[in-house]
Design a protein around this nucleic acid. Sequence first.
DNA 1: ACTTGTCACGCAACCGGTTGCACGTCAAGC
DNA 2: GCTTGACGTGCAACCGGTTGCGTGACAAGT
Lengths: 339, 339
Amino acid sequence: MTGRSTGLTISDVAKAAGVARSSVSRAFTRPDMLSPETVQRIMDAAKRLGYVPNHTARALSTGRHGNVALIVPDVANPFFPPLIRAAQREAERRDFCVFLGNTDEDPKQESKLLGRFAGQVEGVVLVSSRLSDAQIRSHVSQRPLVLINRDVEGIPRVLIDSGSGVSEAVAHLAELGHKKIVYVSGPVTSWSNKQRKAAVQAVAARLGLTVETVAASVASYDAGRNAVGRILATRATAAVAFDDLTAQGVLAGLADRGVAVPADFSVVGCDDVLGAATYPPLTTVSNRSEEAGTVALSLLMDMLKSRVVQDARHVLETHLVVRNTTVGYKAAHGKAEPG
Amino acid sequence: MTGRSTGLTISDVAKAAGVARSSVSRAFTRPDMLSPETVQRIMDAAKRLGYVPNHTARALSTGRHGNVALIVPDVANPFFPPLIRAAQREAERRDFCVFLGNTDEDPKQESKLLGRFAGQVEGVVLVSSRLSDAQIRSHVSQRPLVLINRDVEGIPRVLIDSGSGVSEAVAHLAELGHKKIVYVSGPVTSWSNKQRKAAVQAVAARLGLTVETVAASVASYDAGRNAVGRILATRATAAVAFDDLTAQGVLAGLADRGVAVPADFSVVGCDDVLGAATYPPLTTVSNRSEEAGTVALSLLMDMLKSRVVQDARHVLETHLVVRNTTVGYKAAHGKAEPG
DNA sequence: ACTTGTCACGCAACCGGTTGCACGTCAAGC
DNA sequence: GCTTGACGTGCAACCGGTTGCGTGACAAGT
C-alpha cells in the first residue's frame, strides 16, 4: 500500500527466530553481544524472510542517518562532476549516501537547501559556497560542515591552490623564452581569479616578464574569444587564461585571425576541464577537484566520528600540464621578441 | 550532543502553546482541522522556540520521506550533469530532495545503490541503466521507478531519440552534396549506438548515399582520433560520429593529417555535449537531456501521487544543430566526388 | 554449599512525529 | 428540554528500530 519495499520488521524476524526484538536488533548492530548460534539463527531467519533493516527507523532512534549532503553551485559546470563523483565514492566506501544540492550560484537557494537537508543528513560539504562568512558560521553551529574552495577561519576546509600551477605555467612560458604575456582574467568576485592573477603577477615580476591583464569578465568561451583583439594589441606572445573555457575561446579568436597556436602564440588554460579532448590539446593547470572531493568527505567523516570540529585547512597544490598549445617563442620564430 | 540542529520537539511546542502534541502536529499538516486561533497560537510558539519538524520522524510514521533517488552511470560524463540539474530542479519544485548515485557503469554497483537507497526514497529514476530487464522489473515491483534511455515495456520511461537528429544530420550532408559518408560507431552494447547507426543507414539508403561504418569501439577522444586513418581510407567526404567526444577525436586526427575541416571534410557529432566551446564549433545533434530529467521527475511524481504505474513511454526527438564543421562538398571543392 | 561474577537475553522505554477514535461543547432542529 | 450533529481537541497506539537495565543460568572462587 505504502509502496514500502517489504512489510517486514524486526518483529517478524524475532518471531521466526524465536527471540526478542531486541536480539534481532543486536544481531545486526552488535552481534558480539549475542551468542554466535543465536546470531546465526536470527540471520538465517532474516535472510529466509527477506528482511532488510529500515533505515528511517534506525535513524530516528540513533540520530545517525548515514547521509551527507553535497552542495555545489552548478552541477553542469564541468569543474564539479569529478569532485562529486569522488566525494560520492568516498561516502559510499563508508556506507554513506549523499544528497546532492544545486544552488544555481544563488545564496538564497543555498540556504534553502541547507535547511531542507537539515535533519536528514549528519553533515554537509559546501563547495564554492556563495554564502557570507557569517551565514556559513551560523550553519556550522548546527551541524558538521566542511568547505571546499572557501577559506573561513575555524571551519574545516579544503582549498585548491591554483596559484601554484599558474606559477608553474608562467615559469614554463619564461623558460620557453616569452618576454611578455597576458593574463585573461575571470570574474572579479572569484576567489580563484584573485589567486590566479596574483600568482601570475608575482612570478612574472620575479622572472622579469612583462604581464598585462585583459578582462574577460565572465568565464566563458565567448568572453575569451572577444578578448583576443585586446590580447593581440598588447603584442604579448603568450596568454594565461582564467580557465579552460576562456582559453578555448581565446584559441578560437586566434584562429579567426589566422594566428597559429602554438607556432605564433602560446595559450595556457586552467582547471584541466576539457582534458585532452580538444584540438590542439590545451596546455593547462591541473585542478585536483577529485582529491578535493575525497579529502572533504574524509574530513567530514572524521568529524562525525570524533564529534569534534578541527580547524583543518587542507591545501591542494596544482601543477602545470604541458600539452600542445605552448611552445618556445624563440624556437618557433628563431628571433627575439618583436619590437 | 548528537549534533541535531535543535533538540526541539512537538512536545516542547505543545507545552509552550498549551495544547496536546497531536494539535501541534496537525497545525503543521492539516491546519484546517483546528480552529484558526489555535493554529496561530501554535505557530507563534513554534516560531518563538525555533522549532522545525523532524523529517525522519515524520517519514517513519507516514512512510513518506520526500526523497527520490537519481542513479546515473557516471556523473563526470558531460552528458549527465544537465540532466541531473534539471531533475534536481523539478524535484525541488515539489519539495523533494534527491539522492544522487553513481554506478561507474557497473550493474553490481547499481543494484547495491538501489538497495542502499531503498527505504529512504519514495521513488527512483534510473538513467541509462546497465541492469538487465529482469533486474529492473524486480526493482519496479518494490517501489516506483522511471527509466531514462532504457526501453522496458510496462515501465514508465523517457527516451531520447537521437535517431531523429542523426537522420537530419545525414539529410543535411546529402543536401550539401556529399555522396559518401562514414558512421563512426560507439560501444556495440549501447542502445543509443544501435539507434544512431540504424538511423544513419536508413536515411542514407533513402537518399542514395553510400555509408560505411568505422568502429571506434569505445566512445572517446582517442578512439575517434585513431579511427581517422580508416575513415580517410573509405574516401568518404563526411563523417557522423557516435558522440561529440569521438567527433572531437576525429577532428584532431584530421588536423594531424592536414585535412581541413570543413573545407576538405565534414564532421558531425552527437549529444551537443561540448556546446560551442571548441574550435571550430562542432555541428552536432542536440541531446535534450535536460528535458529528459525534468520529464522523468514529473512522471515519477505523478506516480507517487496517483499510486498507479502508468505505462508511459515518452520520446524526445532530437535535432541537428548546424555549426562550423560541415559545409557543402561541392561548394568547397567545386567539383564532383573524387573517383 | 554459598557468594560472586559473567554472559546471553528479554523487557520496556524511547526516538519524534502521525492518526483513528473518543470525548466534550455548543448551536441548531424538533 | 432533549436529541442530533458538527466541530475542536486530547488520548493513546503506532511507525520500526535501539538501548539501559534487570534477570536467570551457569561457572569459578572460597
